[in-house]
């Protein structure tokens, strides 16, 4: 399946976004700030995760007119979020010609059992995952990019770290698993055998693996890159900070120079206040967005 032409084309765009920063934006003005700061793509949504958290209600796909404005304003790829399982929002987004769809736990799920069958779409999808099984199930459904879920809108990096470490550890384990034990590994991971075999052979996912959910500082971005993320998504972390433009630039720099503490130090200077954030450890289970989807 991962050799199929349509799928390669979708993964191809994900490849181009590596080493970069994808920024959440709610309007054209923010999109412009993101592009000027060096974002590789913007993610259009109705409200940033920390506002969704605060205000509650049902979070849906962004307004069409807002997305059109954003697409008109920037030349970089525009992504947009659809609710988990809401294949009609996804079809509308495809008709609008967004460049990538995020089937996202940040929005209120439309289906508590099924994710979107992403294979028939021409537009690529990215999906969240907390562990390897979840990542491979999404790829089996046609996702062309995985992002670890973290805890969106928290400004707390702890969950993003947990999910990235979990996936890396589980992949490493597969590379040393005897071939005859892979079907059982697939059963335990609740993931397609073909994909489990791919990971066992290559030691990585057949699609790029990015990080999201809780990245608020350049050091946060560098941390998840060190742990194996190939690029980062920043949601509330930019436009909920004191100086979004400066912080956006700093995070772009940290995604490129995550291996270089001197450059990171430059990126961390004179940033203004980060978003306030919520300690995930004090958060009720019901308030966690990462548990949406399976």
């Amino acid at each position: 399946m991962y050799l199929d032409e349509d799928f390669r084309l979708k993964v191809g765009l994900a490849e181009m976004l590596k080493g970069g920063v994808i920024m959440d934006v709610t309007n054209a003005e923010q999109a412009k700030i993101a592009e000027d700061a060096g974002a590789t793509a913007v993610m259009a949504l109705e409200r940033v995760p920390s506002d969704i958290r605060k205000e509650g209600g049902v979070a849906r796909m962004a307004s069409i007119s807002k997305m059109r404005e954003i697409m008109k304003t920037v030349s970089i790829p525009v992504m947009a979020k659809a609710r988990i399982g809401h294949f009609m929002e996804a079809k509308v987004l495809q008709a609008l010609k967004v460049d990538f769809i995020d089937e996202s736990e940040v929005l209120t799920p439309a289906d508590e059992e099924n994710h979107i069958d992403k294979r028939p779409f021409r537009v690529p999808f990215v999906c969240g995952a907390r562990n390897l099984g979840e990542a491979l199930r999404r790829i089996g459904e046609g996702a062309a990019m995985i992002r670890t879920k973290g805890e969106a809108g928290s400004g707390d990096i702890v969950e993003a770290v947990r999910h990235m470490r979990t996936i890396q550890k589980e992949m490493k384990r597969l590379t040393v698993t005897d071939k005859s034990e892979l079907p059982t590994a697939a059963k335990n991971l609740q993931a397609p055998l073909e994909l489990v075999e791919y990971v066992a052979e290559h030691g990585k996912l057949p699609v790029p693996n990015f990080s999201a959910g809780g990245i608020a500082t350049p050091a946060d971005a560098a941390l998840v890159m060190q742990l194996g993320a190939e690029a980062v998504f920043v949601g509330s972390g930019i436009f909920k900070s004191e100086d979004p433009s400066r912080r956006a630039k700093a995070i772009v720099k940290s995604a490129t120079y995550f291996n270089d503490p001197d450059k990171l130090l430059e990126a961390c200077e004179e940033l203004g206040e980060a978003m306030r954030g919520i300690n995930v450890a004090t958060m009720a289970e019901s308030e966690k967005l990462q548990t949406r989807g399976w």
Partner: peptide
């Protein structure tokens, strides 16, 4: 390589 040319130009400048 391939990627986002606008991002590359900004990083080149910075």
């Amino acid at each position: 390589p391939g990627g986002e040319s606008s991002t590359m130009v900004k990083l080149l400048d910075d």
